[in-house]
Simulated scan of single mutants.
Amino acid sequence: MTTSAARPRAVLYRMVMPGHLCPFGLKARHLLRSRGYEVEDHWLETREATDAFKAEHDVRTTPQVFIDGVRIGGHDDLRRFLGLKVRDPKATTYRPVAALFGMTALMALALSYAMTGSPLTIRGAEWFVSLSMCVLALLKLQDVQTFSSMFLNYDLLAKRWVPYATLYPFLEGVAGVLMVAGALTWFSAPLALVIGGIGAVSVFKAVYLEKRTLKCACVGGGSNVPLGFVSLTENLMMVAMALWMLAAPVLWPGLHAAM
């Protein structure tokens, strides 16, 4: 049986003030405890105490971790010391897109099951695309100006008519909401077809013809998602959805009425 005396020890200094509880201090404490360390937890409860600690140890930030009398550093330094990965804020990643489409797929399956008793239906596939459009529009609408600045780097129509970069999230959102409802298809489908088609051509030209390395504005202006296959797929999904919504009433006139 392991005793506390046999456990490795770490000393942690972190800010715990009435108006501020350092989240990285909590993360560092949790990480140390999860790795079996007995933590000597020192609170820096005032700004004066924090500044004095920084001056004494010649550091710029807190928390600070010490193991065996050696300063390891802050939370990221501790992760490196323990052999764990440290997130690079500048690195490109597809994680936001994967999370978005994963969640909208689950939402579509849930809606399909609630409405028809089966998670796998044609209407569920339509909801997946239209809900994805809604969520993508929502992310862009959180910061339209930042989105539009990124969008202007590659969208062909936005380069010619700058206001389109600001209007795009609203147009995508309107088309998505109407497609979720299955309403005003005569308006929503052509709208999605136009903006999706322009987007697909713009991405293909920038990435595959001009070989440019850009960040995608598809999930908002603050993302590090690279412009490329995923961005092209998003636009092609919108085009396919629009064509399907226009063709379905002609090819299968009773399809939606039966659901």
Rank of each mutant, 00 (worst) to 15 (best):
V230D: 05
S188Q: 12
L167R: 03
G220A: 06
S112Y: 00
W161I: 15
G196N: 08
W244E: 02
V39A: 03
T233C: 13
S149K: 07
S223C: 05
Q64S: 05
L109C: 13
Y37H: 02
P249E: 05
P169D: 05
P18W: 10
A248N: 03
R60T: 14
G196K: 08
C134L: 13
F170V: 13
S223M: 08
H42P: 06
K27C: 04
A52N: 01
A206T: 05
M17P: 13
L100W: 05
T116D: 12
A10H: 04
Y37E: 04
D76L: 04
V239Y: 03
K27M: 12
V65K: 00
V219D: 06
T93K: 08
L141Y: 10
Q145Y: 08
L243W: 03
P8G: 02
L152S: 13
F204T: 07
D77R: 01
V177A: 12
V129M: 14
D58T: 05
F53W: 09
G220Q: 07
L32C: 06
P169S: 04
W161L: 14
M107G: 14
D143R: 00
D68K: 01
G199S: 07
T185M: 15
S132C: 12
F170N: 08
F128Q: 04
G102F: 10
V180M: 09
A91W: 02
V174P: 08
K211Q: 14
G124Q: 00
L171Q: 07
V225N: 00
T3G: 10
E56G: 00
P96R: 07
Q64A: 02
K211G: 03
M115Q: 12
P253M: 11
K140Q: 12
L156Q: 09
L236Q: 05
L227Y: 05
M150K: 14
W244K: 02
A175W: 03
K211Y: 10
M15Y: 04
A137D: 03
F151N: 06
K205C: 01
R87V: 01
E48S: 06
D68E: 14
G69F: 15
A192S: 15
T116C: 04
Y13M: 08
V39S: 01
V86N: 11
V162E: 10
G173H: 07
T166F: 06
P253L: 10
G36P: 06
M179C: 10
T213V: 10
A28W: 06
L21M: 12
H30L: 09
W127L: 15
A200H: 05
G222R: 05
G102Q: 07
K140V: 05
P190V: 15
S130W: 04
L82P: 01
A49P: 00
E38Q: 08
Q145D: 14
T104D: 14
